[in-house]
């Protein structure tokens, strides 16, 4: 689905990514983990050419992105969804307007917009919030809106840049649950960059560990699943007690 071949990216004198090759299979959830500065975010951003590689090629969904014209690249990006750590919603647009934006950009027939937006919002469980502004939402809700926006054009791939890193454990589970069901129900290939080990263990089928801008190792995993977390205070007490026992 995604193939990076010997990609290299340099910022000024700093080599962010050197000679990275990796392959993401269709339909899997692929993780990339590493310390900060290991180049994992850059690798993700190379996948939709938000960063242009200094060398190497990027192939995604059968198209060699590195050889496309600007216009072709824009068209291809319509079916590559992306979400970010800071959500990056347009604060002056309502939830509905945020999600409809990619449909307009892709030039989909106007008559289909409303239905599609509501469908995506329903998928992330935020249909009732369509007229709210991002400032009125919690972090987890914002990320779910961002996911709905990324899903609008029925992408084949969803790139996630630290999708849960500014969320608390409850909302992390909530967002991971949504990502998991996107993968299972819609068959979307997902790439997740994160520094959170738990995130990788819970959802990823395969993970690449990066260090100093290179691939350190790629391993197969059996995802442990997203834990059921609730806001019941008893749950917090339980968790704390359990942690205490483990330490002892």
């Amino acid at each position: 689905m995604i193939t990076l071949t010997n990609v290299r990216k340099q910022f000024g004198r700093d080599i962010a990514v050197q000679d990275v090759s990796l392959h993401v299979e269709r339909g899997e959830i692929y993780g990339i983990i590493g310390a900060s500065g290991a180049g994992k975010s850059t690798v993700l951003r190379l996948m939709n050419l938000l960063e242009t590689p200094d060398a190497g090629t990027v192939e995604i969904d059968g198209a060699l992105l590195t050889s496309l014209s600007t216009k072709q690249l824009r068209a291809k990006r319509h079916v590559i969804g992306m979400i970010f750590q800071q959500f990056n919603l347009v604060a002056n647009k309502t939830v509905f307007e945020n999600v409809v934006a990619p449909l307009r950009l892709a030039g989909r027939p106007r008559a289909t917009h409303e239905e599609r937006v509501l469908e995506c919002l329903r998928f992330v469980g935020l249909e009732a919030f369509k007229d709210k502004y991002p400032a009125q939402l919690s972090g987890g809700q914002k990320q779910r809106v961002a996911i709905a926006r990324a899903l609008a054009n029925e992408p084949h791939v969803l790139l996630c840049d630290e999708p849960t890193s500014s969320l608390d454990p409850n909302t992390t589970a909530e967002v991971l649950g949504v990502l998991k069901s996107i993968n299972e129900r819609l068959g979307v290939t997902i790439v997740i960059v994160t520094h959170e080990m738990d995130v990788i263990k819970q959802v990823c089928d395969r993970v690449t560990v990066m260090a100093d801008g290179s691939v350190y190792e790629t391993i197969d995993l059996v995802p442990s699943g997203v834990p059921a977390i609730d806001n019941n205070p008893a749950w917090f007490v339980d968790q704390l007690k359990k942690a205490g026992e483990a330490d002892a």
């Binding site: 068209a75 970010f84 990056n88 934006a101 990619p102």
Partner: peptide, 15 residues
């Protein structure tokens, strides 16, 4: 304007 907003727009295929 936060940089990320522009980045998100570009990632969606905005001209």
């Amino acid at each position: 304007v936060p940089r990320g907003v522009v980045e998100a727009a570009v990632s969606m295929g905005a001209s």
